[in-house]
Amino acid sequence: MTGPEKTAPSWAGPRLRVEGLVKRYRGSDRNAVDGVSLEVGAGEIFGLLGPNGAGKTSTILVSTTRARPTAGKVTLDGIDVAVHGSRARRHLGVVTQVNTLDRSLSVWENLYFHCRFFGFSRREAKARCRDLLDRFELADRSGDRVDHLSGGLAQRAQLARALAHHPSVLFLDEPTAWLDPQSRLALWDRVRALRDQEGVSVVLTTHSMDEADRLCDRVAIMDQGRILVCGTPEELKRAVAAAVTVELRLKAPPSPEVLHRLEALRGVERVTSEADKVEVLTASRDGAVPDLVSAVGEGLLDLSVSEPTLESVFISLTGRNLRD
């Protein structure tokens, strides 16, 4: 445990620290990342949540030494990624949105050469490959060419590769964007297990509210290059006067007048109807139900109010839907 580059084991601070990060791409007239600061602790699963163009991927690109910061600083285990890129890369692992496995090589060779790039001896690399293939249930596919793998398997192989060199922070850029629901759940389990067993910190970007809510210890909601709010999913939902969805069931499909009256109510963001059901998204819970009831009048059969979600947090912060 010697050598000047061995900052990691003795590093007690946050695994990832982003301070006042600004990123403006050449030829662009706005900042893709506009003053982002955040910290990710050991063993934490941290989510960057926001719509496309919010600056999530740019934050990850700078943090993983693939983009130069315009201003601000990113440190990984205390190492400035813009100054000591090569050293910082020993401390991080990345799974990108698209499959970047080496198609000229087999699954085993992908893992093996990755280990070798990180200075493992042949013997060490082979041992690590065996371990990873077992843990990621890829042993029976080890000789396969990677372009023959399904989306879920390729994702697993990429995750195994990103972890092969024991990084302290694992970056997952939209890890489940292209996965079927079953593979998505499996990946969440795997990410939690990694955190629990290896103590690796995870930074993931997502535009899935569900993913942020169910997987992340803390979430930063980003929009237009800035962090709007950051905290545990529960904190966010509690602290923000979150929008709620009220579902109304009527005796008959609502008349256009009723829909107009609902839309005109204070705080109502969106009204959608299907047959005898009406869904109303309203910015605040306070006073919403009595207003809705009186607006609908006689024909109301049933009413339910959904719990605030991260989506409603986003809407109340930006006035926009996450998928807009």
Partner: peptide, 27 residues
């Protein structure tokens, strides 16, 4: 509590990466 740089909760074993790096990687 809602600022991004607040104290981060620490979960799981906080093992540094270097402790599991095999021999040559420590060079």
């Amino acid at each position: 509590a809602l600022t991004a740089t607040g104290a981060a909760p620490s979960k799981g074993a906080s093992r540094g990466p270097g402790e599991t790096w095999p021999g040559r990687a420590r060079a």
